[in-house]
Design a protein around this nucleic acid. Structure first.
Lengths: 168, 168
DNA sequence: ATTTTATGTCAGTCATATTGACTTATATGC
DNA sequence: GCATATAAGTCAATATGACTGACATAAAAT
């Protein structure tokens, strides 16, 4: 009897634990985007603009195709957003040195400012969560998050991925 | 000299650590939604439908206003999605007992099946990540994620929040 | 010289969200 | 009991971010 009962309880706890995991991700992601979203609205931009600004800031000189691969959207989708950011002078393009078909993307000074403004909110939020939780918890957080990330994206977080980026 | 240099390095590491945190969230969330998204497409549904199915499954008898508050969308937005799910018989409505203005929402058998199908992928992904990372890491993960979640949403994860729900 | 690649563009469509205005039914407070 | 508030729903217009498909141009690679 106790065997069956505790078995059921274990199953229930497991189910509950996993569902809480799902919800943690959902709510954390939402909490994470709402502040930048509010700022972006003042500029007439949306979340898509933030993602472009973020990754161009993160990897200066990134090509259009690398950006497309990172964001996993079509070039038509990127085009509108990137075009606006270039028109409004948050991002500049220059031709690749070794391959002149490429457009290497970089933030302008104005772009760096906006990137800071937007990401600062997110960094502050993460910093606060890390501080409260402590270094051990942070280590666990990173382990679990890495496990959640798809194989394809995981490379962005390995030494190999970082080295590949240096080659431009 | 070493003081300055290590100070700079610490700043750099901190910046890098925080940026990696941002990216972990971005990629984990994307990895987390892509499988259900693919299934939903077969039903002519989108991510919004999944969210509704999920929370109705999670809190059977949830009212429309509670669902709106959970999802933080307008009733006009919910209306289309919920209407489709009711038309297609994934969700049923019944009037509230104490307040007949309310529509209490529940999954049908068909709805439960779809909910399982969709969430199973996510549960499996979390289960695998938890298993690989180990119980200590899971504890850390939960601590950090809770810290990332906005004050308003955090209540969903406390005993008080759970108790409030029982009252229907 | 041909083919492939990197980028860009035009056109049409869809899903998800918004604001604003208004309706209906029911509950609640005085 | 009547006025007001609340729960839910609807109509209309709009914005954002994504998609597919077709086609164009320049430069690199074979």
């Amino acid at each position: 009897m106790t065997d069956i009962k505790s078995g059921v309880n274990l199953l229930f706890l497991r189910e509950e634990e996993l569902r809480q995991g799902i919800e943690l991700l959902y709510f954390a992601y939402r909490g994470f985007t709402e502040e930048p979203d509010a700022i972006l609205a003042d500029y007439g931009f949306g979340r898509a603009h933030h993602r472009v600004i973020y990754f161009v800031g993160r990897r200066p000189g990134i090509t259009v195709s690398e950006l497309l691969a990172t964001l996993r959207i079509t070039k038509q989708s990127l085009s509108r957003v990137l075009g606006q950011l270039i028109d409004d002078q948050f991002i500049t393009q220059r031709p690749g040195l070794r391959d002149r078909r490429q457009r290497l993307l970089e933030l302008t000074a104005k772009g760096v400012d906006l990137e800071r403004l937007l990401t600062e909110k997110q960094r502050a939020r993460i910093a606060a969560a890390y501080r409260e939780a402590g270094p051990e918890a942070v280590e666990g957080f990173r382990k679990v998050m890495l496990g959640l990330i798809g194989e394809a994206d995981r490379r962005s977080f390995t030494a190999a991925g970082l080295r590949a980026r240096e080659r431009r």
